[in-house]
């Protein structure tokens, strides 16, 4: 998800960095990445306090909700996260991404549902750049492109 966002930003002529976390992470854990998008040269690829945080599960909410900048946006996969958000100085966007992806028939497309909602709210990149990106990233896998595109549009159409 982070990678396709950085890729799309680059395609649109912006500066972008994508910094994955690596090491000992398990599925369902707090594996994460940091994406910086800017009209200028990017100094630090590490964010002190990001403007947007997307959390896909409960452990990630615990780990990352305090880092978000005051006035920032927190995207939550509400299918997997049910706890209350303790911070009052940020806006929360709840996206039932997992259940929507399941309804679409492909639970693995959960990140694309979230991505659709994310760019609708943030306007960081356009939906068409993302869709073009899907096509080039998943060459010769038309069915996968279709599934991901459907998920992206579903999230995008949520708000």
């Amino acid at each position: 998800m982070g990678r396709s966002l950085a890729q799309a930003a680059m395609e649109e002529g912006k500066s972008a960095t994508y910094l994955p976390s690596y090491g000992v992470e398990v599925r369902g854990g707090t594996c994460n990445c940091t994406v910086a998008v800017s009209d200028e040269e990017i100094a630090s690829p590490i964010a002190s306090s990001p403007e947007y945080v997307v959390v896909m599960n409960q452990p990630s909410l615990v780990k990352f909700q305090n880092q978000i900048e005051s006035g920032g946006l927190l995207f939550v996969n509400s299918s997997l996260v049910d706890s209350q958000i303790s911070r009052g100085d940020i806006d929360v966007v709840r996206v039932p991404a997992s259940s929507m992806a399941e309804e679409l028939g492909n639970p693995k497309s959960v990140n694309m549902v979230m991505m659709g909602a994310f760019i609708k709210k943030t306007n960081l990149v356009s939906i068409s750049t993302l869709i073009d990106g899907l096509a080039s990233a998943l060459k010769n896998k038309e069915d996968l492109v279709e599934i991901n595109k459907k998920a992206l549009l579903a999230g995008y159409g949520l708000f």
Binding site: R3, A6, A16, Y18, L19, P20, Y22, P45
Partner: peptide, 10 residues
């Protein structure tokens, strides 16, 4: 360093 190696940029 590990971060430069893993980081993606144009």
């Amino acid at each position: 360093d590990g971060m430069l190696g893993q980081m993606m940029e144009p």
